[in-house]
Amino acid sequence: MQNLGIAITGSGSAVPATFLDNQSLTQLVETTDEWISIRTGIRQRRLAKPSETITDLATAASRQAIAMAGINPHDVDLILLATSTPDDLFGSACKIQAQLGATKAVAFDLTAACSGFVFGLVTAAQYIRTGVYQNVLLIGADILSRWVDWQDRRTCVLFGDGAGAVVIQANEKDCLLGFELRSDGTQNNCLNLACTPEPTELTQGVKVGKGNFQPITMNGKEVYRFAVQKVPEVIDKALFRANLSVEQIDWLLLHQANQRILDAVRERLNIPEHKVISNLANYGNTSAASIPLALDESVRQGKIKPSDIIATSGFGAGLTWGAAIFQWGR
């Protein structure tokens, strides 16, 4: 009988060696370690060197995930790269495929900003549940430091760089228990990394726009309000689809955006503090990388154990948000 369920069987992560702590940021903008820590929970962030790429970080994380899953790169059928900051606007998944030697895999990028990993998890599950693929490599990776205005203290204190990956395999028991995905483009202006083309005249009367991206802009108050309202709702809906109660969750794993958001969501759902996974103090907001990075760290620390039930939620630009309830391991 064909296995039409899914299991997450391996994880991996990679971050740049270079870090920038809050004290160092005071040399760039008018701020303090206390101001940043109280408002965000972040104490330092990892920053990619000019020579480091999404492909490098993603490949390193993927190798760890593939090894933990006990498969080889040539066993991988599909590679999904969730990112908003590819090395190449045409996509970076194929280059990762080449570096891994995953010759059988089809690869493509998926863009849903900080929700990318959750959207990617649900997408991967559909390919497996329909019997098309057996082994999927899902990567969340971003290098946001390249798109930050380092003179804007509202945004530069928040973001860091990194990559996380998981292997998702066909399984007799379905470990993706429920999910819910949402989008609201009417709030798109709250968080942007926008292209603002520069008018360029080719010949008389013929103009084109020359590609030019502006730094990240964010309405922090609106994003906070959105996350605190919508994330508990979407987790509740995913739990309903999974036929589970909040009390049955072993871990709450949210996108690592801001500790105040994590605390507010936990309180609204009435989840004990010891069940919340948080590592943003060391990495900042790594966008699509944040959930798999925190997941891998917790697995390797022995915190998350096989069969633990995890409620995860991503939220961010688009605006997009979503939640998934899954069991770790087979």
Rank of each mutant, 00 (worst) to 15 (best):
Tyr127Arg: 02
Gly101Ala: 07
Gly91Thr: 11
Ala93Phe: 00
Gly101Ser: 04
Val136Glu: 02
Thr103Met: 13
Gln126Ala: 11
Ala141Met: 07
Gln134Met: 02
Tyr127Lys: 03
Leu89Ser: 14
Ala102Gln: 10
Ser92Cys: 15
Ser92Phe: 14
Ser145Gly: 09
Ala125Lys: 04
Ala125Trp: 01
Ala124Pro: 12
Ala112Arg: 10
Gln134Arg: 09
Thr130Gln: 08
Phe90Gly: 07
Phe90Arg: 08
Leu144Thr: 10
Val136Arg: 00
Arg146Asp: 09
Phe119Arg: 00
Ala112Thr: 13
Gly131Met: 02
Ser115Trp: 01
Thr123Ser: 12
Pro86Asn: 04
Cys114Gly: 01
Ile143Gln: 03
Ala113Val: 06
Gly120Asn: 11
Val106Arg: 08
Ser84Asp: 02
Ala124Trp: 02
Phe90Lys: 07
Ala141Lys: 10
Cys94Thr: 14
Arg129Glu: 10
Val118Lys: 02
Lys95Ile: 09
Ala124Gln: 12
Ala107Glu: 05
Gly140Trp: 06
Val122Ser: 11
Leu110Ile: 08
Thr111Ile: 12
Tyr127Trp: 15
Thr103Glu: 15
Ala93Tyr: 00
Thr83Met: 03
Ile139Gly: 03
Ala98Arg: 07
Gly116Trp: 02
Phe108Leu: 06
Ser92Ala: 15
Gln99Asn: 15
Gly131Phe: 07
Leu100Asn: 05
Lys104Tyr: 06
Lys104Phe: 01
Ala107Lys: 03
Leu138Phe: 14
Asn135Met: 03
Thr85Gly: 12
Val118Pro: 12
Thr83Asn: 06
Thr83Gln: 04
Gly140Cys: 04
Val118Met: 08
Leu138Gln: 10
Thr123Ala: 14
Ala107Phe: 01
Thr85His: 08
Val132Glu: 07
Asp87Trp: 08
Thr130Asp: 07
Phe117Gln: 12
Asn135Trp: 01
Ala112Pro: 06
Gly91Met: 09
Pro86Ile: 01
Val122Leu: 09
Val122Arg: 13
Lys95Leu: 14
Phe90His: 09
Cys114Met: 10
